[in-house]
Write a protein that binds this DNA or RNA. Structure first.
Length: 263
DNA sequence: ATGGTTGGGGTCCAA
């Protein structure tokens, strides 16, 4: 089974890109963030045409928005709200017993000081609340996968320059502290790092503002797949689909995909 | 050098 996550930055404008991705990588389940579409405007028929017969969505006007599209049956679990009422989370049960959470964490604004930047304060609080929720309501012996744009690049090789980005939101020690709390909440595995050594640079996002992003390669790893320990033996393949940053009209994020063996 | 680009909705905000 293949599960993918992608911050699509408008699901409507990038449907043809989604089609190309689905045809190439054949995900069974596709989790999207930043759909930027109210539920009544979600492109259901188009998604159905790609074989996604099962869809759970949570949108809002203009901003945020998450969706889980699936070729295999899914059952809605939760649409949780951590701290504010924005559409940043949706979760489902898969028929093989896995619970799948799709998140779009707050970006956090520009100034890396929670005492003067309310958005950053909210971001830290949001991560903390998510960690608390998993610690309180979920157990590390369950099969749980958490994916999404977490807007945090936790490791020194998850950014193009650890030293130069220490005061840049997404890579501050404060965010890494809260990210690690989330990781420990139910003993999550950082799946991408199971496949790619911590010593290697690994990115999933390159800013639109960085012209020549490929030559400069000033990327960050903001998109994550976390899994509980009971899924460790099922992890079979992993792709960060960098070629989708090179298309016409790309998202600034690329898809991250894992394949699980049947158990 | 402190910019740069993009999408949605509406003449600016968020990323």
């Amino acid at each position: 089974m293949r599960i993918a996550t992608w911050n699509i930055n408008s699901v409507r404008i990038r449907f043809e890109l989604i089609r190309a991705f689905v045809e190439k990588y054949k995900p069974d389940v596709l989790c999207l963030q930043e759909t930027k579409t109210q539920d009544e405007s979600f492109p259901h028929l188009e998604m159905q045409s790609l074989g996604f017969n099962y869809r759970e969505i949570r949108g809002e006007k203009s901003y945020n928005g998450v969706a889980i599209l699936s070729k295999i049956p899914i059952r809605l679990s939760d649409k949780l709200t951590f701290f504010n009422d924005q559409s940043r989370h949706i979760s489902v049960h898969l028929e093989n017993g896995i619970e799948l959470h799709n998140f779009y964490f707050p970006s956090g604004g520009d100034i890396a000081d929670p005492s003067i930047n309310q958005k950053f304060h909210h971001k830290l609080q949001y991560i903390d609340n998510v960690a608390d929720w998993f610690k309180r309501y979920r157990s590390d012996n369950k099969k749980i996968i958490l994916v999404g744009d977490l807007n945090i690049a936790p490791g020194k090789n998850d950014v193009w320059s650890h030293r130069q980005l220490l005061d840049t939101i997404s890579h501050t020690y404060m965010e890494v502290y809260h990210f690690n709390r989330l990781m420990k909440s139910i003993n999550f595995i950082d799946v991408s790092r199971e496949f790619v050594s911590y010593e290697e640079k690994l990115y999933s996002w390159w800013s639109y503002k960085n012209i020549g992003w490929r030559e400069n390669d000033k990327g960050r790893r903001l998109d994550h797949i976390l899994a509980t320990q009971s899924l460790k033996e099922s992890l079979n393949k992993h792709f960060i689909c960098k070629e989708f940053r090179d298309t016409n009209g790309p998202s600034d994020h690329v898809p991250v995909l894992i394949e699980l063996t049947k158990d």
